[in-house]
């Protein structure tokens, strides 16, 4: 019996598992980079630059009626971020840029504490790009800028003419500039002559396979984040356990909008990664349309909606749809790219 059992295990010596040249995969990954990743970083770089300009103009002569324009530029830039946020592969992973672009979910009130410290200091010496990059990651990006802009007393705090108001404006400009600078760096490192795109175009199949693996991991990770964090953590296990302030962007009323854009991005990349004409691509497309459909006309504020038994049902359905979308994508994407995915991050021990 034992011999039989043993015979059933299989051992294999290192026969070079030859990197399988896979022309379809190369084409798919290059298309994903050229048609999805880079255009979205271009949009992000433009939107964050416009936001930086808006803050510089506002702070030159702060007036309360200028806040509406700042909020509009904030939404445009945050929309652009929501459209590429799930990609960790590439230059956004360098120097912990990802954590500096946005800081959510927030732990230990890091943004609140960081901003209190930052606002209490004086002058602008600590706000130069070099010095500002050394400060807490929590205060460097969208989450901190939202906190300043959507403070219930923002109008007074920015326009009182006091030294504190000037400092507050300078901090906001520093954050907006950091977002614009980081976005421009990420775009540049993708597109410059010796950048990531070129390295993929000229790289061997192992390089393409790594990119495929990383992009697919990020892609599936998005659905986990929406399911567990953007929806699940806020919804709790019942209407009595709702945590509205855990919602992403609740101050700016972006919690549902962010998910809708995340799913739009997932559909755009999904169509590239998995041939929509294939059975798997058709299933993925259907699952994406189903989930996206549920975000249309949904209440803007997840925290508020989930406390209402009637609205909550729709959020439960959305969560189920995202969960099932994850399963569909898990079955479709790695197979289409000819890769296997490991998820120590997801099912570790």
């Amino acid at each position: 019996m034992r011999t039989k059992l043993l015979a059933l295990f299989c051992f294999a010596f290192s026969v070079p598992a030859v990197a399988q040249e896979n022309p379809g995969r190369r084409e798919t990954i290059l298309r994903a980079v050229k048609d999805f990743v880079i255009p979205r970083y271009e949009t992000l770089a433009q939107a964050t630059k416009a936001e930086q300009d808006a803050w510089s103009a506002f702070c030159a002569a702060p007036k309360a009626d200028g806040l509406a324009g700042l909020k509009s530029s904030y939404h445009t830039a945050a929309d652009a971020w929501s459209g590429i946020e799930f990609v960790l592969y590439g230059p956004v992973g360098t120097d912990f840029r990802f954590e500096r672009m946005a800081h959510w979910p927030e732990r230990k009130n890091a943004i609140g504490r960081g901003l209190t410290n930052l606002l209490a200091r004086k002058g602008t010496d600590d706000l130069t790009p070099e010095r500002f990059a050394q400060t807490s990651a929590a205060v460097q990006g969208f989450s901190a800028l939202e906190r300043l802009l959507y403070d219930p007393d923002a109008a007074g705090a920015f326009t009182s003419g006091s030294a504190e108001a000037t400092r507050r404006c300078n901090v906001a400009v520093a954050i907006a500039s950091n977002l614009a600078r980081t976005s421009a760096q990420v775009l540049d490192e993708w597109t410059r002559p010796d950048g990531v795109l070129t390295s993929l175009e000229t790289g061997d199949d192992a390089k393409i396979e790594e990119a495929a693996t990383r992009l697919a991991t990020d892609y599936l990770g998005l659905f986990d984040i929406v399911d567990d964090q953007k929806l699940g953590a806020v919804m709790g296990d019942g209407t009595e356990n709702v945590r509205p302030t855990l919602a992403e962007g609740w101050r700016s009323g972006r919690s549902m909008r962010a998910i809708a854009i995340n799913l739009e991005a997932a559909q755009a990349l999904g169509q590239i990664l998995v041939d929509p004409a294939s059975d798997e691509g058709s299933s993925l497309g259907f699952a994406l349309r189903t989930a996206r459909g549920m975000t249309e006309g949904a209440p803007a504020d997840i925290g508020k909606a989930t406390a209402d038994p009637k609205e909550r049902r729709n959020l439960v359905l959305l969560r189920d749809a995202v969960h099932s979308l994850r399963e569909t994508a898990q079955a479709a994407v790695p197979a289409a790219l000819g890769i296997s995915l490991g998820f120590n991050s997801r099912d570790g021990d």
Binding site: P16, T213, G342, F343, G348
Partner: peptide, 30 residues
């Protein structure tokens, strides 16, 4: 699980990938 095997010297900022082989392509468990 998705980026192979690397050497990580405490004193250096860069990791050194043990790449060029299937080590870089396999999925490594915990």
């Amino acid at each position: 699980g998705n980026s192979g095997v690397s050497l990580a010297p405490v004193a250096q900022d860069q990791l050194k990938s043990l790449g060029g082989t299937e080590l870089g392509r396999w999925v490594w468990d915990n």
